[in-house]
Nucleic acid binder design. Sequence first.
RNA 1: GUGGGCGUAGCUCAGCUGGAAGAGCACAAGAUUGUGGAUCUUGGGGUCGCGGGAUCAAAACCCGUCGCCCACCCCA
Length: 423
Amino acid sequence: MRQKFTAFPGMEDILPGEVERWQWLEQRARIFFESRGFREIRTPLLEPAELFARSIGEATDIVHKEMYSFEDRGGRKMSLRPEMTASVARAVIEKGLLKTAKSLRLYYLGPMFRAERPQAGRKRQFHQIGIEMINEAGLEADVEVIRLLYDFLKYTGVAEPLVQLNDLGNAQNRPKLAEDLRHYFDREKSKLCPDCHWRLEKNVFRIFDCKVESCQPVIQSAPWDEVHPLGEDFEKLTQMLNGQKIPFTVKRRLVRGLDYYDGVVFEAVSRSLGAQDAVAGGGRYNQLYAELGGQKTPCTGFSIGMERLLTVLENEMEPLSEKIRKRRVYLAPLDASDEILDIFRKKALELRELGIRTETLPGEFSLSRHLKRANQWNIRYVLMLGPDEIKKSKCTVKDLDEKQQFEIGLDELSSTMERVLRT
RNA sequence: GUGGGCGUAGCUCAGCUGGAAGAGCACAAGAUUGUGGAUCUUGGGGUCGCGGGAUCAAAACCCGUCGCCCACCCCA
């Protein structure tokens, strides 16, 4: 097993057999978001390094130690995108998309890159599905984003999506909030772990992510309600969510690692994921566009980790392979006559136009072999055509699951198979 | 960057206090040229992660090294 080339750590091949789940999820996403008025946007994988520093934040881990950055031949500093929100903002500002529309609803889907140490649920190349609601202020937009996330997760088959939310405060009061929290944790410093001491210096909010046992009491009794009580707006938001029957919990220690968030933030979590339990995360960001040189533009959005969602769905996905399997038929010509092969070519074309995968083993005329192969390829229906069938102008269709077979007139073969496969 | 676990066939792994590299699954051919999954027969596949050391003898013991996984940090 001496191998010359291997994929880089944390960059995985998605092989046939697994790729079908990805295709399925991508298709679900497109159907779901497009039918709700979102339009896809695709941006380059490479962007100016500065774009991410300005948007995500110079001091965040993502920017200062997890970006793939390098210079191209012209000495331009570029980075592989670690997330999509900044790229979308750049494109919207650069192309002036808000000049011909008051607001935008965009979705995206694709690979992101972060040079972290790989682990369960954390790859260096990973994939996200996300949406951005651009230039949409107001509680209604916040509620809608959360509802879209909740509905989409249900739509893909997550049994009970759990949404957690928090209010990080707005641009005006956030510095003071950080200051007050720093003040509090500084008083309790002796009870905190070394990592938290570091966080205290760097980014107080991160202390809330600490999992060390001894830090928990201090975190629990953080004076959120004094320094930043949940306001009337947040109260209204929760009422609206209740009204729409979206289950959620308020988690005051929920903070996010990207600096551009302010206001309402949320995550969807699943216990089945292990240490990295967030399936999706998002929230409101009202300052980003101004920061990047555009007009001040209130926005909200989220992104979903595709790998993580697929992990959550793993159990529920079993019927999926079944569904894919059903859209296939196998053609078994029983001799090499031109007449039979001609009919099969024509029928294969018809079936394929109907979106039915049609396969055969070329140059093989032994029925036993055909059946074996169909079985091996996990195809349920075998269409058999030989001299006997030609005489009657019919085709014998064998159902390998039910061990039945029946004859269908050649003229209605394709339409009948379409009906059979639909159920 | 810091811990812990694991590296033997394509996959899952067994291999005892050192004594001729194995099983199951998968793959290929046949028994079987108009009725498949089973069974049987046969076959291809290995620098036992890599390098060194002690030994008559190492997959096993010692040292080093590389890789992967999990966890911390952080996030999707």
